[in-house]
């Protein structure tokens, strides 16, 4: 399923809103989550899961092609942990 199919599904599930409104809602949900992550926050959506950030230390990597050592800087990566309900429903 893609974002536009999700928007269609949301618009069909609630007849009170237009497709255009559904589009803004879906975009807003995801931008709210990524903005909060960028601020260093954690998002907890009961029954769905939680989004948080994890830090990775800098390390010495290797260019697999040349074998040359390269410095990989420390970075922050997003992490999603599925909630109980989602975990149980997917594994059925």
């Amino acid at each position: 399923m893609t974002k536009s199919e999700l928007i269609d599904a949301v618009a069909n599930a609630n007849k009170d809103i237009t497709r255009r409104e559904a589009e803004v809602v879906v975009s807003t949900v995801f931008s709210a989550i990524s903005d909060e992550l960028a601020n260093g926050g954690r998002i907890e959506l009961r029954g769905f899961g939680s989004f948080s950030i994890k830090t990775r230390d800098s390390r010495t990597g290797r260019n697999p092609k040349t074998g040359e050592s390269v410095h990989v800087p420390a970075k922050t990566v997003p992490h999603f942990k599925p909630g109980k309900e989602l975990r149980e429903r997917v594994d059925k």
Binding site: M1, L6, A9, V10, A13, N14, I17, A22, V25, V26, V29, L45, G47, F48, E85, L86, R89, V90, K92
Partner: peptide, 14 residues
């Protein structure tokens, strides 16, 4: 509507 969005994603993943 937030609940609908999340529910829809869960249904598809399920």
């Amino acid at each position: 509507i937030v609940e609908i969005v999340l529910e829809e994603i869960k249904n598809v993943l399920a």
